[in-house]
Design a protein around this nucleic acid. Sequence first.
DNA 1: TTGAAAGCGATACCAG
DNA 2: CTGGTATCGCTTTCAA
Lengths: 331, 331
Amino acid sequence: MNAKPPTSLDVARLAGVSQATVSYVLNDRPGARVSDETRERVREAAERLGYVPHAGARTLRTGRSGLILISMDDVPYGPLAIGMLEELDRELSRRGYTLVQYGARRLRGVPAARAWAELRPVAVLAGAGKLDEQAVAVLRSAGVKAVVALGAHSSAVTASVVVDHAGIGALAAGHLIDRGCRTIAAVVPAEPGLREMGEHRLSGARRVAEARGVPLTRADLPFSEEGAAALLDVWRRVDGVFAYNDDYAMLLMTVLRDAGVAVPGDVRMVGCDDLPLATLLRPRLTTVRIDVSAMPSLLARRLEELMEQEAPAEPDHIHPWNPVLVVRESS
Amino acid sequence: MNAKPPTSLDVARLAGVSQATVSYVLNDRPGARVSDETRERVREAAERLGYVPHAGARTLRTGRSGLILISMDDVPYGPLAIGMLEELDRELSRRGYTLVQYGARRLRGVPAARAWAELRPVAVLAGAGKLDEQAVAVLRSAGVKAVVALGAHSSAVTASVVVDHAGIGALAAGHLIDRGCRTIAAVVPAEPGLREMGEHRLSGARRVAEARGVPLTRADLPFSEEGAAALLDVWRRVDGVFAYNDDYAMLLMTVLRDAGVAVPGDVRMVGCDDLPLATLLRPRLTTVRIDVSAMPSLLARRLEELMEQEAPAEPDHIHPWNPVLVVRESS
DNA sequence: TTGAAAGCGATACCAG
DNA sequence: CTGGTATCGCTTTCAA
């Protein structure tokens, strides 16, 4: 039990060949000419010993780790994000990389970058908020080829994946106005983790509302019945609400029903995410669905480009999703 | 841009000391007596160069990586699990370990173990279904000190964290019977990822129902209104339902309302998870809340024990949560 | 108080 | 076709 893990030298000895041959065989090096018989012996010896190569040693020698780090705290919860991550993992592992989620102990900026850099990953994906200019510099100098910021707006300092929250708000507001709404409200969650996204969605809604001459009220809403009830005069004053997402929409619909405000009769309602609960509400909830199916392969391709090329690329961004309106009964 | 990352030797040269001194200073080795002046010089040189140690090299030299791997596919979605993971991360990083989520490309058994073993982690947490005896052996022989299976029942081959799904079902069924239910149904989700947990919850409910002489019907339910409506005769035949979780409870409550079945008048309903939506439903949903607050520190402590000791421990298990009934209006 | 040097495991160059 | 061996970056023992 306490024996140290077998090394390639152990395999070599057991097979009666040199370490070099073991390496050639186990990695199928194209240039290497090793007889089929030796190949077999090496394979068998490795099998017998339960040999597993030491990633750290390999990294040290080759200078490339094949590791791609993504910061855990920057992946939103939910089946959508999880599915995307799984797909991304598949794409990347097909290309020979290893995707790993790293907690980084809620660090940000340079300290976070240092923690990531110790692993000498070949790429790092992290929330735009964690990647300031110096953090990116630390990563670059540690040999990270691709640094990609994840966030609601593109980063000035590195490549980024921007998620178009403003577009969601715009789509929702446009729909409400199309339906005849003359004054609308947009919810911004009071929860710290959600507020920023809420503000981006709001800004998109505001842009459309202004363009079409419809007044828009911002409603800062904590997720609680009391919070929603406290804003009752807001909901009574408008005839359309973009509720930030489906959860908030459900909250509002419950509170409005208890208060005798009819949806969509008195106020039309639009959510976002197309959660399962959207079709379970009565009236069924109109919502914005986000189609992220294109994102994993797009991102994987972009990463590969960045990782293969020598000089760091210009800060650019990809925009890998697409909001789609799903009209149901609440609007 | 293309310069290689600075090494400890670079730092040493810049500070005018030896590599050894750099190592002593940067790791504050207790035994090392280095003058404050040299200390300062070394620190400054490291700073100036943006030096970040190379984790792989350190692992190679010391034989310990400090890496703890947890398989991504075995962490359920949802804020609960995410919060737990964050807390666990904090606990472990406080102790000097680095928690990392690894996708493992949906591998299982020996291939998965090999992939994990390459990183020479000091501990691996993975779904019980992925860890057969040989997989555990591979990990052990790669020097992994702690192998912990995550699952609904304890593993015969290694230590495990078992989540007490049966206890949840038992609690829910007991409550329904206390409320006077004479025939109850328990939902088992048809979705592949959920079915197994559903069956464990069912078995707990069944145990209690049998002990108290109440007939229990198993209801295999896909998550859709049609699926739920197809089983209407089941819901009409019973006077209590344990709905597997809050999402399924919401589905059922919607379908029952549409069909004119009153909750809790005709049938009492209990969910699980105490999601935000539970209090938004009308009637408000009675549910089983899972208190996982103790789990991260418990698990971290257990891991630490396993990692420090030499011989692999007997397969035992910890049981780090606690179902609690939250009674509302639906029951 | 500091330095020289061995060695962790794998790779790849250069000989044979 | 195969083998020796230098090397990657870091820690740590032993000497100075």
